[in-house]
Amino acid sequence: MPIHEKSLIRPENLREQESLDIDGIDVSGPWSTFIESRVVNDYNENLEDEVSAFPGGSLIHRCWQCGACTNSCTVNAINPDFNPRFWIYLVRLGMEQELIRDKDIIWQCVSCHKCTHVCPRDVEPEGVMKALSHWLEYKGHTPKSNSMHFDEEFYSQVLKTGKIEEGRVIRNYFNRTSQPLFQNWLIRMVKGMIRGLPFVLMIKMGIATLLRPKTRNWKASSDAISEYLDERVEERNSVINRTDQQEGKHGQE
């Protein structure tokens, strides 16, 4: 079938002929572009439930596809392929394979909250983006993103001491993601930071690095948080296992 808005179609689904003659009529030029016809039959009917089970994704069912999220999106302005509305659409339809095509950019949401600000249905699209990137990692479609490494490092420190020490977060994060700590711009930044630092403060910050700032009597909170998270993770796994069982696969370990 001839089409008018090529930008909406994936390039691999387009067929273009240099010259074409149909029933004696010359349809060369723009009219000779066609969409490859196909039937989608690999739906994951539980996709919306799965994504909803990840932190931030629970309100996805409210979406009515107005597109305000994509229009307001900071990352979309840099990369037009970053399209929250479209991804929410695919999830609700259960089109897992289609969604996976954008797996390498979904994690790049910068959490500016413009989408959540304008969303008329309180979907919290920003949270849905986070849920989606975790889902992609959980299902093994992508390796853990740098952003997820950072979140995990941050969370582990909060869980342990109730506070974070920025230097430690940064060092451990660079370590986890095997990035060199000595990059020109980082060195210049640290120099700039030390330049004006009063001696006493420098000593104080040094001590904080060694002793780590702590919230006192944090253990009860830390235990409660761990236990709560374990329950959430178990619930999430059971949702995913349900899909796998329906598809006759083995359950997640």
Binding site: S147, D151, F154, V158
Partner: peptide, 9 residues
């Protein structure tokens, strides 16, 4: 960061 681990935490 922590909200990405769990918003209620």
């Amino acid at each position: 960061e922590v909200k990405n681990i769990d918003p209620e935490i």
